[in-house]
Amino acid sequence: MNQDEGRNEAAADRALHELLTGKRLMAFDLDGTLIDSVPDLAAALVRALDDEGLAVPRQEDVSHWVGNGTRKLVERGLAWALNTPVEAVDETLSARVYAAFMGYYGDAPHRLTRLYRGVAETLYALKDAGFMLVLVTNKPERFIAPLLEHFALNEAFSLCLGGDSLARKKPDPLPLTHAAAHFGVPAGACVMVGDSRHDMAAGKAAGFATAALTYGYNHGEPISESAPDALLDSLSELLSTSARPSSTR
């Protein structure tokens, strides 16, 4: 039996969430979905703000600012430290703090970051069951490979897209439609898995089914308000027929 035949048998025998019926491609968010990265993001932001003599936030504050890429994270942190709207932050100051943040975070992107329970086992089980796995994150592309290699996830994904890989990032559907087109998979055979309203908005706009994790970062809002097709308390529920559908549907 060759590898493909083995995977086909695994797919036939494995109990999977009903959302995955007829699906071929699965796109996953990274921060707040696969990894808890806020400790390292917060540490880098604290150092960058402290360099400017500004007030520094708590990790809980930073968790509410994650989701739209590192530049937006820094802008929100600056706005908080200056007690001013984001659009009123000085561009020169913002650029300086952003450069410092990128340097600090790049030096230690996984010192405090942890992999959520069940993630590695679930991803490789889905891959072995025949699904095409794609990583779609708003994190800059330069940080993806070091994180995946550190957590031994680099062989799980067939394509990885960062927030600067294409002209637009989530919540725009472009990264998802690009991934589907890249592998020649129709949108109706794809699923977006994430933890934020931006993931759900991108998935819906792309015509993907959506699955939302109840943990992670969603600006302090319940992810159920984004009306995903399924709610998951753990990524491993994708491998179970007992996972619950979204109560908002």
Rank of each mutant, 00 (worst) to 15 (best):
N2H: 09
Q3W: 11
E5T: 14
G6Y: 08
G6F: 10
N8G: 04
A10W: 01
H17E: 03
T21E: 15
G22S: 12
F28H: 05
F28E: 04
D31N: 07
T33V: 13
D36M: 06
D40T: 14
A42P: 11
A44M: 10
L45V: 00
L45Y: 00
D50C: 15
D50K: 11
D50E: 06
E52T: 14
V56I: 00
Q59Y: 07
E60D: 10
V62H: 01
V66F: 06
G67D: 01
G69M: 01
K72Q: 00
V74L: 03
E75Q: 07
R76K: 07
G77Q: 04
G77E: 00
L78T: 00
A79S: 01
A79P: 01
W80F: 14
A81V: 06
E87I: 01
E87A: 06
A88S: 11
V89S: 05
V89P: 06
V89A: 07
M102Q: 13
G103F: 09
Y105F: 13
A108Y: 09
P109D: 14
P109W: 12
R111Y: 13
R114V: 14
G118H: 04
A120D: 09
L123M: 13
Y124W: 05
A125K: 02
K127C: 08
K127L: 08
D128T: 14
L135G: 04
T137V: 08
R142C: 10
R142S: 15
L148H: 07
H150D: 01
A152I: 08
A152E: 13
E155I: 03
F157R: 02
C160A: 08
L166F: 15
A167W: 06
K169F: 05
P171Y: 01
L174H: 11
P175N: 09
T177N: 09
T177K: 03
T177R: 08
F183C: 04
F183D: 06
A187G: 02
A189C: 14
C190D: 11
R197N: 06
H198Y: 14
H198M: 15
M200G: 01
M200D: 02
A201N: 14
A201E: 13
A205L: 13
Y217M: 06
H219C: 07
H219N: 02
E221A: 10
S226Y: 05
A227C: 12
L231W: 02
L238I: 04
T241I: 15
A243Y: 02
P245M: 12
P245H: 11
S247I: 14
T248D: 12
T248E: 02
